[in-house]
Structures are given as structure tokens and as C-alpha cells.
Amino acid sequence: MHLRHGGKQQLSEASMSISPQLETFLAESCTNYEVVSHPYSERAANTARSACIPDRTMAKAVVLKDGNGYVMAVMPSRNRLMLAWLNMRLDRNLKLVQETTLQDLFPDCQPGAIPAMGIAYGMKTVWDDALNTVADIYIEGGNHRELIHMHRNEFQKLMYGQPHAAISCDIEEEEAYRSC
């Protein structure tokens, strides 16, 4: 693990393993964060277990598109995106992006390890209000072995000006919300 504060860093073996574009964005934003290494895992919920962190603190990214462009939705890993809610809140007609398109959008990331920080890639990002309820937030670092860990205040600072709303629900509550 290594810490980065305000763009200054203490280097370790893993220091260059996160997405270069994400690393540059965090440095230019003077963000306090740390890189957390974990055993190889795929899917955000599995990564939370692998890294021994609460799944509500692991943020996952879902990339969407409509005729007006791309949007990244960010929510806790255990939640399901409620696309109808998101479309209503943004007054859009967003659909899931095909996996094959993601490599073009995130060329410095491994497939399935997209950082939940679309703004680092020039993409509008909408984030779920559930992330306001946790003190720490973890996002994929662009690979299947490192996470970015930051305090909620740092995450909110980075998301300033990006919309947020209730856009997802806990997987156990999904059926109840779908009937609404």
C-alpha cells in the first residue's frame, strides 16, 4: 500500500499499477487517497470481499449512453442500478454500453476494472446518494489487484458539480422497487 496526498506520493512496487489517467486526474485534483492491493478478483462485489472491505463502501461503475453521449453511474457494489430512476432524474434515455465499447473508452484499464470516476475520463458522472452514508469509499484502480481508497469528503470534492440522486437500490430490495 502507498499513500498519496495532494499529488505527492510515497512510491512502492505497486505505484505505477493504477490507471495512468486516473492517477493523473487524482494528482491534478490534489486528492488524498491511498492505493490498496488485494488478491486478484473480478466484479466489484467480489473485490470488496477479496479486499476485506464492506461492500457498501466499494463503488462500482456502470457506463451508459444515449444520443447525447456517455454517462457513468456510480453506486455501492451491492446495489443495482435503477435505470428508469436515472433516466427520469436526468431526463434522458440511457442504455447500457456494450462491453466491447468499454475498452475504447478506458484504454488504460483492464476489462472489468473500470474506475468509478468517469470525470477522470471526461465523462459525465452521476453518483448514488447511498455513497453519502459511508465514511470511506473504494473504487477500482483500473486493474484487478488495486483499489483507490479515499474518505467520503475527498470523493464528494471530486464529484462537485456532478449530479447525485437515489439511482440504485440494495439487491434485496430490488423487487419491491420494481413494482413501484
Rank of each mutant, 00 (worst) to 15 (best):
F25A: 09
Y177L: 14
M150C: 11
H151V: 06
R152W: 02
N153H: 12
S15E: 06
I18Y: 04
L105S: 04
K8V: 14
Q9W: 06
V71M: 10
L26Q: 04
Q21L: 12
E23Q: 14
A45W: 02
I53D: 03
G69E: 08
A51W: 03
S41E: 09
Q9N: 07
A113C: 15
Y177E: 12
M150N: 04
V126M: 11
M88A: 14
C180S: 09
A45G: 00
D129C: 10
G161L: 10
A14W: 11
Y121F: 15
Y160I: 09
V71K: 02
A59E: 10
V71P: 01
S37A: 14
K8G: 01
Y121K: 04
G122M: 09
M150F: 11
L147M: 14
S77Q: 08
C30F: 08
L22E: 04
S12F: 06
I119F: 01
Y138H: 13
F106Q: 08
C169F: 00
D104G: 12
C169Y: 01
G161I: 11
P39M: 03
P54A: 06
G7K: 05
E13Y: 02
M150W: 02
L83I: 11
E175S: 14
N46G: 09
V97I: 13
L102P: 05
L86E: 06
G118S: 07
N87C: 05
T125P: 05
N132T: 09
I139T: 14
N32M: 02
